[in-house]
Design a protein around this nucleic acid. Structure first.
Lengths: 162, 162
DNA sequence: CTTATAACCAAGTAATTTAGTCAAGAATAG
DNA sequence: CTATTCTTGACTAAATTACTTGGTTATAAG
């Protein structure tokens, strides 16, 4: 799991898409304008999102993108891991042949933690974020915390490959 | 909150430090050897960790590093945010003057989510990871999940600045 | 059928971040 | 004094990120 501005862009774009879809698909130029992201950069991100089934694209006039499935079934973790290459960064490549007294000791621990982060992000759906927004729309109330995270998520959400 | 291999190196090194300290401080060359990380790179990381009070360094023979406070009071989030610059990546710099119909709408949502991730990582202490390891040491049992995460953390841990 | 629209695709480039080297300095135990 | 180890700074190579350019395909609308 990697968490950079790239994932932020992807989540932002997906949220914009989910929030602005009415009947017609949403075009990338709309999202680019609203969110201030380069359209061609969005094209690259959406190429990856499409290959993971998170969005569906239709070409031609009136075309654009729509969500590949219900916003409730798309997790933030799905989006972020879709646009990032998986990280390795161990000197042994997960083969536990690191020399020394403590082979891969902390590596295992990090991998475990990484999995926890992944699970956490799989527990937050786009829909939750959308609902959060509609509650605060218009009102100037400060953003409070999200609803308590349930670690046991719908198994349908857990389809994201690490 | 940023999550890259850099944070992984930092957490790995901090875990190695916490696990290998007996009486004497742990030297960077030890950590570098055990974990296969360049010593000079570790020096850079530990410079930042030291400035945040997460480690204490003592020079000279017999010197090295020790934890700045109890492992139970050092969260993974502390370590990761210590070695990374904070992310912004909004075109308005958080000033909500983005043009268009939905100014900074999704930005707020991301910021909220980012805070949730930060809180989550602040809920996992180095000590928890160490205990996890000592349970599995020797045994070849597969690593199972960490103990359920309590979102309400010790307030002492929440000192990390975002 | 033509045309405008918009997804799709690939190559290249500038900026940033990451990971590492190198060289020096300062504190300190022995 | 001397070896050790932290501490600091400058510099470099590689990787990633963000963006540009220039196309091609599919398709709705005229």
């Amino acid at each position: 799991m990697r968490l950079t501005t790239r994932g932020r862009y992807a989540v932002t774009a997906m949220l914009d898409l989910a929030l602005n879809i009415e009947k017609r698909p949403v075009t990338l130029s709309e999202i680019a304008d609203r969110q201030g992201i380069s359209q061609s950069y969005l094209e690259q991100l959406f190429s990856k999102l499409r290959k993971k089934g998170l969005v569906d694209g239709t070409r031609g006039p009136g075309g654009g993108y729509k969500l590949g499935r219900s916003a409730a079934l798309i997790s933030v973790g799905d989006v972020i891991s879709a646009v990032n290459e998986p990280v390795d960064a161990t000197q042994c490549g997960g083969q536990k042949n690191c020399r020394g007294e403590n082979p891969c000791l902390t590596h295992d621990l990090w991998q475990e933690l990484s999995l926890q982060i992944q699970n956490f992000l799989s527990g937050v759906s786009l829909k939750e974020l959308m609902d959060k927004e509609s509650k605060n729309s218009g009102a100037k109330a400060p953003l409070t915390s999200l609803t308590p995270i349930h670690m046991q998520v719908n198994s349908a959400i857990k389809t994201s490959v690490f």
